[in-house]
Amino acid sequence: MNPMWIDTLFFYFFALLVLGGGVATITCKSAVHSAISLIVSMVGVAGLFLLQHAEFLFAVQIVLYIGGVMVLFLFVIMLVNLDESMQMRQFNRQWLLAVAAVIAAGVQAVWLLSKPADLPAAVPQVPGGPGNVQRVADVLFSQYLLPFEIASVLLLAAVIGSVVMAKKRL
């Protein structure tokens, strides 16, 4: 079997997952269905990561995003009684307008991108270098040490914030 061929096949498969999941996310009436569609979409994205040899990101996507965030979403959906919100109108009045505008912009973007992008030539990778996880770690903790530290503060703020917001009595 031609590996190129498999790559292509997988790409289209995952792209289908991503886009199909995405469309289902925004069209489903029920929030639970939306959440499940979103998981599908994210699995597709994770697959794309794998195709691109971003193994660490693949793991992060599965564990953190799909495992963490989506559980959080589902948890809140269950916690907040959505029965009554199901009865409400689910779409904005101007939804047609919005869809038209965004699709127009999207088509334009796709058309703009349809020519092969002439990106600067890449530095070829030295074969037999360190693995993906190690390389990510190297860059993260040397070049991007500062944003990493800022992100820790950011997460602290997020933790405090969600506790402040969600707790009944402080």
């Binding site: 790409f11 792209a15 991503v18 886009l19 995405g22 469309v23 996310t25 925004i26 489903c28 929030a31 939306s34 959440a35 979409s41 794309l48 691109q52 979403f73 809140v76 959906i77 907040v80 959505l82 919100s85 409400m88 109108r89 689910q90 779409f91 904005n92 939804w95 919005a98 869809v99 965004v102 699709i103 912009a105 999207g106 973007a109 796709v110 991108l113 349809s114 020519k115 092969p116 992008a117």
Partner: peptide
């Protein structure tokens, strides 16, 4: 380029979702 087009499409889907849905979680 394929990836760029895919991501642009997903961006558009997400934008549509924010603009047309009234359900905050969605």
């Amino acid at each position: 380029t394929h990836y760029l087009i895919l991501s642009a499409a997903l961006l558009a889907i997400g934008a549509v979702g924010v603009l047309i849905r009234r359900n905050i979680i969605i």
